[in-house]
Amino acid sequence: MSEEQPGSRASRYTVLPATAAASPVIHELEIKRSRFIGHLVRVQTEAGARAVIAGLRREHHEARHACSAFILGADRDVMRSSDDGEPAGTAGLPMLEALSLRETRPASDTLLGSESPGTVVRDLSDVCAVVVRYFGGIKLGAGGLVRAYSDAVSATLDRARLITRQRMVMTGVDAPHAEAGRWENELRTAGYPVHQTRYGSSAATLVVALPDDGRSGSAFGARIASITAGQADVRTLGTEWVDLP
């Protein structure tokens, strides 16, 4: 789970696992004796992305360049790149395109199915790519640099596990203490994992995360009415972004 992204149009997008915030995905290519070391890091803010870039520059202080690109937000409304001394347009922009054009899942896997059959989804976000270059003495030319930086990001992405980040409606089901355990078991059996159970003085609240897709709420309401014989008090607690397994 994480912070809200108010007003976002998207209800889901693709990210690196949370572990990639502290443990980057790294892959190295050697092209005409130059080393291109790709790093992919999960980030949530522009300040966080810039801190990652600065940290890798310090770590690889002997490298000629540490070029970068990052995308942020469910709607991918923040996209930045830097050539870090390479000829303009030969590093940062190709890296950004490798991130933004990455095909993450078929359209048939979307919740609302609004895309046309045969199309693909490109929704990778909350990611910072840094390619560190150790110059090998042979110039690659503009075209060679574009290919090298793009390939470095793409090859690193090929080694990354990607997951779905979903906006969820957190729904509270108030249950008598004596019924909470049974209701929770029946919800789990019906395919509604209980996110947590909060015990109060007079009742327990089962918190269930539902996809914010405009359809799941009514189906859940019918299921909980069946499980509880209409006794449950169901209320909306808010929305959160959740990484799906």
Rank of each mutant, 00 (worst) to 15 (best):
T164I: 14
P211E: 02
H61T: 01
T239D: 06
V15C: 14
A229S: 13
N185F: 05
G200Y: 06
L157A: 07
S100G: 05
D126R: 10
R64V: 07
H39Y: 14
V52S: 09
Q5S: 13
S81T: 07
Q44E: 15
R33G: 05
D126P: 01
A148P: 08
R165H: 15
V173E: 01
Y134Q: 11
P176C: 03
D212R: 02
R33K: 15
L124W: 08
L237A: 11
R182W: 03
G89Q: 00
H60P: 11
R188P: 02
A69R: 10
A107L: 08
L29W: 06
L210Y: 00
T14H: 10
F70V: 00
G141F: 05
H39A: 06
G85D: 03
A49H: 01
A232L: 06
E115C: 10
S226W: 09
L112Y: 07
S11E: 05
A98K: 04
A74H: 07
G92T: 07
E59M: 09
L93T: 12
H39S: 08
V132A: 03
D77P: 06
L157S: 09
E186I: 00
V234L: 02
F70T: 06
D151W: 02
D151V: 00
R165W: 05
L140G: 01
E28I: 06
F70L: 02
L99H: 01
R122Q: 15
I227A: 02
G143E: 03
H195G: 05
P24V: 02
L93R: 13
V121E: 04
Q5H: 13
